[in-house]
């Protein structure tokens, strides 16, 4: 289902400074999961990480499948942009390298003008709700089908991270609530420390087969 909605959005030839002269524009809002008769399949469905996950020797990895992932971009100095998101999400936009946690969603800082919202609520409704509040110069993309979230936990979970990434995961450098995007097993992951021994990894669908097998291999042999 595609809805055409009129909104005060910039078109390609307008500069952000022209905010006050913006003419109403159309955007397409697409529901990517329209019918119940097409089965959804996680990108790691064929690996041990799906369903109950895999664990060994104090390391556990399980997929948190079918969350709604939305990338939002805009100007952090635009107070209307900030308050529109915070009203729609009922959450604060996190500061640099931080996350904010809500009842149904987590917002991750990605870049000075980019955030990722992961929620267990419906992607289509979440996007529609955000777009209703937002105006001006912004970008909002539903990337739910393009990535997935893994939960890494256990008292030895840091050992998997040390093997996969050059980053310093010590508590003094990586406190609970921090998020980074970095090299992970020569691919890329967004890594969030959810608690002392719990880490969320958001990986791209195109790398998920390779990364799931890499993680499986590490856990079996650790």
């Amino acid at each position: 289902m595609i809805q055409m909605v009129t909104s005060n959005m910039l078109n390609d030839t307008q500069h952000p400074d022209e905010k006050n002269t913006i003419k109403p524009a159309l955007y397409a809002l697409m529901d990517q999961c329209t019918s119940g008769d097409v089965a959804m399949e996680s990108p790691v469905v064929h690996t041990a990480i799906a369903n109950d996950g895999i664990q060994n020797n104090g390391i556990k990895v399980v997929e948190e499948a079918f969350l709604s992932h939305l990338v939002i971009r805009g100007n952090v100095n635009d107070q209307d942009f900030i308050s529109a998101i915070e009203t729609a999400a009922s959450m604060r936009l996190p500061e640099k390298l931080q996350t904010s946690q809500g009842a149904h969603a987590t917002i991750y800082w990605v870049s000075p003008d980019e955030w990722l919202i992961a929620t267990n609520k419906d992607a289509f409704e979440t996007e529609a709700n955000l777009r209703e509040k937002l105006s001006g110069h912004y970008a909002l993309v539903n990337v739910s089908g393009g990535q997935t979230r893994l939960l890494l936990s256990g008292s030895n979970s840091h050992r998997l991270l040390h093997a996969a990434s050059p980053y310093d995961f010590h508590l003094s450098n990586f406190p609970v609530g921090k998020v980074i995007t970095t090299v992970f097993a020569r691919a890329q992951a967004l890594i969030h420390r959810k608690s002392i021994d719990e880490w969320e990894l958001i990986i791209r669908r195109s790398f998920s087969d390779y990364l799931a097998l890499w993680i499986e291999d590490f856990i079996i042999s650790c």
Binding site: L97, S111, P112, Y167, T182
Partner: peptide, 18 residues
């Protein structure tokens, strides 16, 4: 191995990231 400071993340990161 180099650590390079990203002026946007305001942290030193491994050269592989750049």
């Amino acid at each position: 191995m180099f650590y390079i400071r990203c002026p946007y993340c305001e942290e030193h990161r491994d050269e592989q990231e750049f």
